[in-house]
Nucleic acid binder design. Structure first.
Lengths: 343, 343
DNA sequence: CGCTTTTGTGCAATCGTTTGCCATGAGTTG
DNA sequence: CAACTCATGGCAAACGATTGCACAAAAGCG
């Protein structure tokens, strides 16, 4: 009777439009309230009734309307994930980690690319107020006041952005940068450059601070270059700026480093013989570029999972959970870093 | 009076919960129906009233409930995008292209990673029936019957999958594969392997057909290897299988090719001197791996945009639009392909 | 100045669920 | 056997918007 391949198309197709709870109730010979309870509140109806309802629902391939449900419950079982640039491989892991955890909890994920714009970001958050139970903000471009204000109105978790009062997941890349500096120092480098990211990036500022502090104790001459957009294209100019100014550099992220590698190869600058390069994030591609990139690896996917967990905690109102998670990073040495030139 | 940074937190915060259309109506001194019309149906109310309403709405930072709206209109202004693997860079472009076009049309994007599972895919589509106006299916794993049946119930557009009766966007990679074969043939290769993708991949089957047909006319000895999962890890075994069996290969996709490149380097097989490699997709990384990958470039982002356009057409019921778009691909020659060894 | 037409607004039904409250009847207890 | 508890299921009121219809006021017309 039932088609094995596609779940019961027959009965639904008959009516034309998707079945409602009323259709199920009619077929099962009960009231809609009973259907609702049979499907959502275990134990609230007798087993016999429950089975009749479940059978009827299956027969009609009934799917509850999330909208009607949200309307009365106030909850949408949807979470919005805002990233500055979907095409940046750094966010792949984040998206995936978040998605996994959300699916497990029965939530849907609304993905939005804010195109590195604070305005789109603020606007989207506002729109989402009604259509999502919470928002995860990756590398937010908003300023501290805005963020704090928004977080009071709706559950928000930030990733790589720390604002008092706003739960956050932070990848400890400043510590990673410090490790990178140590690594380069132990290879004999004294003139080291930091190739910086966007001016309004919070992570960028913190990494620089960490490097400055570490450099002070290490007899390292630290230069700063940038700001650069975190795209491969910007790597060309960044590379030109660093050559001659330092024997090694720590780069804001891998994508920028990829661009630098390409330019350096064009110019005949050898990596790591002439210039050592350390990236950040360990994104897709870092292990098969040439040379493979030494980089600060961050548990990105885990960050996505933790962010979701924290957000769901906030939404659930348990509030018991941590309000701040700092995830460790570690240096993954590949071939783009080597001993300082002995010029 | 209004805070310049965050839109009017004061009045909203006062009430505690987000403003409803009723709150706006009360503040503006009109009925809710008038508010609704003022905000959505231009010219239906007098200009004076409209301004009062707009002002009141702004004052309360009112955002209409998408759920309530969907409930009555039946439309959700949301589109679901299902991809087999979010972490595959091929889909980045697709996601981004779709997102751009959707945003422009005022739609939200629900992103789902189906984890290469036909079951998750079918289940998700069913769930989405009520919560999305339509679905875009990238590289669907469902069989033809299922797809056709589902498409009758709800608007669906497939990408890289052609089923009669289901609107689709197709990247003409078979033609690209043919170009690749010509390219390799003109470089003097006679023994060429096709390193295949997943067994149930429709694109994979079509590419092989195209290659077989072309090989017949070209005096080329065509080998087939695989199936392989489209992950970098699988590239190692794939590489081993090809070495010795052919002097050049055309690979299912770039990610797999990346894995092969790495393995070949480990084994000391030189690319392209000993073995030429042509990938497919031109994903992120193809231009900075070593050697940079010759690959069949596809307009992925455009595919995302076109898919959205077609879907919105279907939803809009105009139905006037094309029901099938074939996007051309072209070979992008980089350094991983070269003259056949003169052994 | 009455008549019709136009314009602007409000009333109330509706969308598909959930849920508080009540009614019924069976089972338990003294 | 009366009085109670408890399990079960139904009624109807929300939730927040949209929209067909009715109606009042204003405008047009001879």
């Amino acid at each position: 009777m039932t088609d094995a391949t596609v779940p019961t198309p027959a009965s639904t197709a008959a009516s034309g439009r998707p079945a409602t709870i009323g259709d199920v109730a009619r077929l099962a010979g009960v009231a809609t309230s009973t259907v609702s309870r049979a499907l959502t509140t275990p134990g609230r109806v007798s087993e016999a009734t429950r089975q009749r309802v479940v059978a009827a629902a299956a027969e009609l391939s009934y799917v509850p309307s999330t909208h009607a449900r949200s309307l009365v419950s106030g909850a949408t079982r949807t979470v919005a994930l805002l990233v500055p640039d979907i095409a940046n491989p750094f966010y792949f892991g984040l998206i995936r980690g978040a998605q996994r955890q959300l699916r497990a909890a029965g939530y849907a994920q609304l993905l939005v690319d804010t195109e590195e714009s604070a305005e789109i970001e603020a606007e989207t958050i506002d729109l989402m107020r009604k259509s999502a139970d919470g928002v995860i903000l990756a590398a937010s471009r908003l300023d501290e006041r805005q963020l704090a204000a928004l977080a009071q109105r709706q559950p928000i978790v930030t990733v790589n952005r720390d604002v008092p009062g706003v739960p956050s997941v932070i990848l400890d890349t400043p510590d990673g940068a410090r490790q990178a500096l140590l690594h380069l120092r132990s290879l004999g480098h004294h003139r080291i450059a930091y190739v910086g990211g966007p001016a309004d990036s919070w992570s960028n500022a913190r990494r620089w601070q960490a490097l400055e502090a570490a450099a002070g104790e290490l007899d390292v001459e630290l230069h700063r270059s940038g700001p650069w957009m975190p795209h491969a294209d910007a790597g060309a100019t960044a590379a030109d700026a660093v050559v001659g100014a330092a024997t090694a550099c720590i780069v804001f992220n891998d994508v920028l480093a990829f661009g630098m590698l390409r330019r350096l190869r064009e110019r005949g600058v050898r990596v790591p013989e002439d210039l050592s390069i350390v990236g950040c994030d360990d994104v897709f591609g870092a292990d098969f570029c040439e040379p493979p990139l030494t980089t600060v690896a961050a548990p990105i996917e885990e960050a996505g999972r933790v962010a979701v967990t924290m957000l769901l905690d906030t939404i659930g109102g348990t509030g018991s959970g941590r309000t701040r998670a700092i995830l460790p990073t570690y240096l993954r040495a590949r071939r783009s870093s080597g001993p300082a030139p002995t010029a």
